[in-house]
Design a protein around this nucleic acid. Structure first.
Length: 423
RNA sequence: CGGGCCGUAGUAUACCGGUAGUACAAGUGCUUUGGGAGCAUUUAGACUGGGUUCAAUUCCCAGCGGCCCGACCA
């Protein structure tokens, strides 16, 4: 993509009404646009990142047997009354609205009811189980206080998977698979080294749920981390009994602030009961379906990556979710340079490399460099009089975002290095 | 929901009870071209409503909106 055609512009100054680093950098870089408190639109660059995060999650969900679908945003009041979660006294984050005929509808704030209700129609035999449907969609929560940029919004994009299994045993097998899939996801988006499986409060049907907490000082949660085992305990369930049960040593636990980037939860029959979600087993006996829920907020995950990987010059995207693989800069107005840069751009496109080409005219080198640092694309390729002088056949300066100095390469070498990244 | 701070061009800010200034962005012209460059010129602004006053962007009240702390967070 040509940067001259990208309508979003970078800003030198941080927005006055945002103090969180993720919002500041994402807005300055033109990745997101704030609509109102807790509500953000995704601009072209931001959407590219979001789509990549989505594809990684989709890949991991499909690998463990997930089947993607999409539940509606508008939700039927009667369905939620079954689980006693329609009332504002029970759930105070509902956005509700009225139909022309006077009926009430709600905007999804979670998906348990929708899935339970749908599956009621399709599950009747043990042969129908297990199934693991999931979706990506926008979720609405009327938070009394949204905060921290895209980390806690009123409207946000998430993935929710629900497991429907015959019994606890089958549930537990999937639950462990999901745990590994989640760890894979956080590794693949570049925050695996800071993200820990965390024991948190469960519910009626399980003692614990598991959160995936990314250590960062801007986190909302407090966890106690054992670095050796890689296990953490959320403050909400932290006590001597739990420490002993998890075979941890209190002296090794360190208090940390963290962001919850994912959560998996055993639901038991909490929802299958009110929805009368049953199947017949081999002996013709009716049994309740055992459920679990597995959620990830994609905006929050993206914001967390910005929080933990950025430096003082801007964002630093991992190759896996960067909006582009390489940022190609042409410097100066020299005709030979412009021609060479065009050639490099066309070659990269032809090779299938995702490239953002800063072909903007009349910009100083400093501005282009600063923008490149701010946008945080993993590789920067510069074509300039200087880079070309270093080689009789047209040199290109290639530098990683995380490196101070680059090296001069020829086009073939550039293509070879970058093609692998987009393989 | 309780508490605090704050609403001035597209963005970031300043001053002021009497003509609202600057920087960046944007337009034009010229210069510059390896770390947000320069000169000239143009465009563009006081959240809404009420009150006090000869006069309110400024003071007071309310509403709306924003950020932060706390509470809450399947």
């Amino acid at each position: 993509m040509r940067q001259s055609k990208l309508f979003t512009k970078t800003r030198k100054e941080a927005p006055a009404d945002e103090t969180s680093k993720n919002a500041e950098l994402l807005i300055r870089g033109g990745f997101i646009h704030k609509e109102m408190a807790g509500v953000y639109s995704f601009l072209p660059l931001g959407l590219r990142v979001l789509n990549k995060v989505e594809n990684i999650i989709r890949d991991e969900m499909d690998k463990i047997g997930g089947t993607e679908m999409r539940t509606s945003v508008l939700q039927n009041k009667e369905v939620w009354e079954k689980s006693n979660r329609w009332s504002d006294e029970v759930v105070d984050t509902w956005f509700k609205t009225k139909l022309k005929n006077g009926g009430e509808v709600g905007l999804s704030f979670t998906n348990e009811e929708a899935y339970s209700n749908i599956l009621k129609q399709y599950v009747s035999s043990y042969k129908d189980l297990p199934i693991f449907p999931y979706d990506f969609k926008n979720i609405f929560r009327n938070e009394t206080r949204s905060k921290s940029g895209i980390m806690r919004g009123r409207e946000f994009y998430w993935k929710a998977l629900y497991s429907f299994t015959k019994d606890e045993e089958e549930h537990n097998v999937f639950y462990e698979k999901a745990k590994i899939a989640y760890q894979n996801i956080f590794k693949r988006v570049g925050i695996g080294h800071l993200t820990y499986v965390t024991f948190a409060s469960g519910g009626t049907f399980s003692k614990f749920s598991h959160e995936f907490q990314t250590i960062t000082s801007v986190g909302e949660d407090t966890v106690y981390l054992d670095e050796n085992s890689g296990i953490a305990i959320n403050k909400e369930v932290y006590n001597d009994e739990v420490i002993a049960e998890l075979k941890l040593n209190k002296e090794n636990l360190v208090e940390k602030r963290a962001v919850e980037v994912g959560n998996i939860f055993s639901l038991g029959t909490k929802f299958s009961e009110p929805f009368d979600l049953k199947y017949k087993n081999e002996n013709g006996e009716e049994k309740l379906v055992v459920m679990g829920s597995y959620g990830i907020g994609l905006g929050r995950l993206m914001g967390t990556v910005v929080e933990v990987l950025s430096d003082d010059k801007g964002m630093v995207w991992p190759e896996s979710i960067a909006p582009f693989t390489v940022h190609l800069l042409s410097l100066g107005e020299d005709k030979a340079v412009l021609k060479e840069a065009e050639k490099v751009y066309e070659s990269l496109l032809k090779a299938g490399v995702e490239v953002l080409f800063d072909d903007r005219k009349d910009l100083s080198a400093g501005e282009k460099f600063s923008d490149a640092d701010l946008l945080g694309i993993p590789f920067r390729a510069v074509v300039s009089a200087r880079s070309m002088k270093d080689s009789s056949v047209g040199g290109i300066e290639l530098k990683k975002r995380t490196e101070e100095k680059g090296k001069i390469v020829l086009l073939d070498e550039l293509l070879k290095i970058l093609k692998e990244k987009n393989a």
